[in-house]
């Protein structure tokens, strides 16, 4: 990535960081405007916001039916952040923050920590650590390797897809002029949506696997047969 770092005192701020801040400001402003629309009973903004949030909540509830209230804000924020960040690359002169490995790695670490946060909060530390020894203590190394690899895979997958997408778009733009890349830009939108969705769903599945014993226990309590 051909970036020119900004300096804040002795610290050099990457463009991804500045773009993320700008994006956060935009999202905050959009949230404020949308929140004002929620006061109107049948406004389009309110219907759209309720519909999108309900869809995301239903998707989370399908995986963690007994913890969706706590998990939904995290997954929804991942989807919104990633979708917005992925689309930022369409703005001329800007790059998607998710094309930066530092950003995707940070998000992967956040997902890694969130899995343990939700699991420990719901099950307790001992129960959460015990699941690494099940069904057999022999599998403990594999569990640990799995934790590391899936976090790495999250970071690398998103970084690789978005970076390659931007590079492909740049090459097509250089070779074929301005009109031909329009379908490619449409592909960029779709790809941004899909990558955000995949990242969020994977994070949800990881959290769901961490809460599996709790979900099973509550399901058994609700349906004894």
């Amino acid at each position: 990535m051909n970036e020119t770092p900004l300096f804040l005192g002795h610290f050099s701020l990457s463009q991804s960081l500045v773009t993320t801040w700008a994006m956060m400001a935009v999202l905050l402003a959009a949230s404020w405007l949308l929140a004002r629309q929620l006061g109107k009973p049948s406004s389009l903004g309110r219907v759209a916001a309720e519909t999108v949030y309900t869809m995301m909540e239903n998707a989370v509830r399908d995986v963690v039916p007994h913890s969706y209230v706590e998990v939904t804000p995290f997954i929804a924020t991942l989807w919104i952040f990633l979708f917005t960040a992925n689309l930022t690359g369409l703005i001329p002169g800007l790059h998607s923050p998710t094309a930066d490995l530092s950003v995707t790695a940070a998000l992967a670490v956040v997902v890694f920590l969130s899995v343990h946060w939700f699991a420990i909060r719901s099950l307790g530390l001992r129960a959460h650590l015990r699941h690494y020894l099940s069904p057999s203590p022999i599998l403990l190394p594999f569990h640990l390797i799995s934790e590391i690899t899936r976090t790495l895979a999250l970071a690398i997958r998103l970084f690789g897809n978005i970076m390659s997408l931007e590079m492909a778009a740049l090459l097509v733009l250089l070779v074929a002029g301005f009109l031909v890349p329009v379908p490619l830009l449409m592909l960029h939108v779709v790809e941004a949506l899909i990558q955000a969705y995949i990242f969020g769903v994977l994070a949800l599945l990881y959290i769901g696997s961490g809460l599996e014993s709790l979900e099973k226990q509550k399901s058994d309590q609700r349906n004894p047969s």
Binding site: L27, E50, Y53, A76
Partner: peptide, 27 residues
């Protein structure tokens, strides 16, 4: 970049708190 890495984590957590406070709760 360690700074970007750490600040992005902070950014996400801040964004999570902001959206939870100003968007998800009203919705």
């Amino acid at each position: 970049d360690p700074l970007t890495f750490i600040l992005e984590i902070v950014n996400f957590l801040v964004l999570l708190w902001l959206l939870k406070r100003f968007l998800y709760a009203p919705i």
